[in-house]
Design a binder for these strands. Structure first.
Lengths: 129, 129
DNA sequence: CGGCATCCCGAGGGATACTG
DNA sequence: CAGTATCCCTCGGGATGCCG
């Protein structure tokens, strides 16, 4: 019983893993995790590095990631307060996968653009030789 | 110039890779891709296997995945028409990563639940010993 | 069976203003 | 600097009905 045989299943919509997957399957969450893999960063630094993210969304994203135990929030009582975000050990094991996904998209973008063009031209069946 | 040096960057919000990442960073898209890795499936079969997905959303998701060149749609002119979805070669290279993410969540769910409990109890700093 | 069309609602997220 | 608090509005996605 201690072993996980009939344990978690993301394909079951009542499984709690579904919620976690939904939070990870988020553009902003993936970008934040990917960026934190390299090094811990302060709030505004993180905001500047992630093009197009707003302050509100970054805060929300960081809170969720913190709640799930992927990100750690460290407050330093400097003159203007400094807050540094970093990956937890759990979060580090996760980012291996996350960054791979982002890299994959970048590496295969040309193929994707080609596919989009074909699709948009009505060529939805297999190309001729 | 033909080489990709200053090529694509998902952290640039004007980069086309950002849109693709956003479509992949989607709960339903990940589940569909993950399920298709095992075998090609018909529409309603796919719908039954993915708990909680509606017909509309599944259709949308499949169209996007098809447009980006990850999924192939095959129509068979049987009596009630049969439509089979499968991964393209490009899609197959992608799912390696996708399924890892789903598996990761399932494997680490216990740690995540623990982290959530700590967070919700106001214990947002490092645990003692 | 495998969709498309329509209506509709609630959450997500942008913009803006304010605070410790 | 690192947020919180509102307003507001889009749009994702559920429900339902119809079609080839």
């Amino acid at each position: 019983m201690n072993e996980e045989q009939l344990s978690y299943d993301v394909y079951d919509d009542r499984c709690p893993t579904r919620d976690v997957l939904a939070r990870l399957a988020d553009k902003w969450a993936l970008l934040v995790l990917g960026r934190l893999e390299r090094e811990p960063l302060r709030f505004n630094h993180l905001k500047r590095e992630i093009g197009g993210i707003t302050q509100k969304v970054l805060t929300q994203t960081l809170r969720r990631l913190e709640r799930d135990g992927f990100v750690s929030r460290e407050v330093y009582a400097t003159v203007p307060v400094t807050v540094e975000y970093s990956l937890t050990p759990l979060g580090k094991t996760l980012t291996k996968t996350v960054t791979i996904l982002a890299r994959w998209v970048e590496d295969n973008m040309d193929s994707i653009l080609q596919a989009q063009t074909n699709f948009d031209n009505g060529c939805r069946t297999v190309m001729p030789g």
